[in-house]
Computed example of a mutant assay.
Amino acid sequence: MIPLAIRVYLQNKGKRMDQDIERLFEKMCDPNESEAYLFADKLGLKADEEAKNRLIEMIKGDNWEVAYLACRALSKTHWQEEALDAIFEVIFDKKNKNLQGAFVQILEEYNLSERFVDVFRVYLFGNFKASTLAKDLLDQVEFEITPRTIRKAEKHWNHYLHNPEDEGSVSIKKSEVEPMLLEMRELFS
C-alpha cells in the first residue's frame, strides 16, 4: 500500500505535468509565438500517450504550420513510427500536394532506416520540392534493404513508369532509379 502522502504527491505531480503539457501546446500553437519550435521540442520531450495522440491529430489537421510543429515535437519522442505513419499519410494525401515539401523536410528529424519505400514513393510521386528533398534522403540515409523492400520499390517504379505525372522527368528519374534498383538487387544475388 502506498502511503497517503506519496499518493497525494504523485497526484499533484501528475496535475502539474498536465498543466505543463497544456501550456506547451498553447505556446506551440500560438501563431504569434516567435519561439514555437522551442516549445514543440520541449513538448516532445515531455509528451505522454495522450499528448502523442493529440499531436498525431494535429499532423492530420488543416493548419500545416501547427502540423509541422507537431511533427517536430513527435520527432523527440519514442513514438516515431506512429508519427511517421501519420506524416506519410499527410504527404500522400492529394489535397496536400502543395505542402509536401514542408512535411518531407521534417523527415530529417526522424530515423528513416526502415522507410525506404515511403521515401522512394515521395521521390517518384511528390511535387518538385518534395521529390528533390526525398532524393537527398535516399542519398544520405542508410536504409535497411531486404528483398521485399526491393520488390515493393520495383512495384512503385513500374507504376510510375506507366503513370508519370510529368513526362519530362521520366528520363531523369530513369537514369537515377534503374542503377539504384540494380545495385540493391546485386546485394542479394
Results as ranks from 00 to 15, higher is better:
H162L: 01
G168M: 01
E154P: 06
L124S: 03
R115P: 07
G101W: 13
E154N: 12
E114G: 07
F116T: 05
L138D: 08
R151I: 00
H159N: 11
L124C: 07
A153C: 11
E167Y: 05
F116S: 07
F128S: 12
I106P: 11
A102C: 15
F120P: 02
D136L: 13
D166E: 04
F128H: 10
R121W: 00
P164I: 00
E154A: 11
F116L: 09
V122M: 01
T149G: 12
G101N: 13
L99T: 11
D166T: 08
E154V: 12
G126H: 10
E154F: 05
E144D: 10
L137F: 02
S131G: 08
L133Q: 15
R115C: 03
L112Y: 05
R148T: 12
L138H: 06
I172L: 14
I106H: 09
T149S: 14
R148P: 06
N98I: 12
Q140K: 15
D118C: 02
F116H: 08
V122K: 02
V117K: 04
W157D: 06
F125H: 05
P147T: 04
V122W: 08
A102I: 15
Y123T: 07
K129Y: 14
V119C: 04
R115K: 13
Y160A: 10
N111K: 15
N111G: 14
E167I: 02
E109I: 11
W157P: 00
F103V: 05
F120R: 02
S171V: 06
E109M: 15
T149I: 12
Q105L: 10
A153S: 12
H162P: 09
G168Q: 01
V117Q: 07
H162T: 05
H156A: 02
I106E: 14
H156I: 09
L133A: 13
K152V: 00
A134N: 02
D139A: 13
V117F: 08
I150K: 09
F116Y: 10
K97A: 06
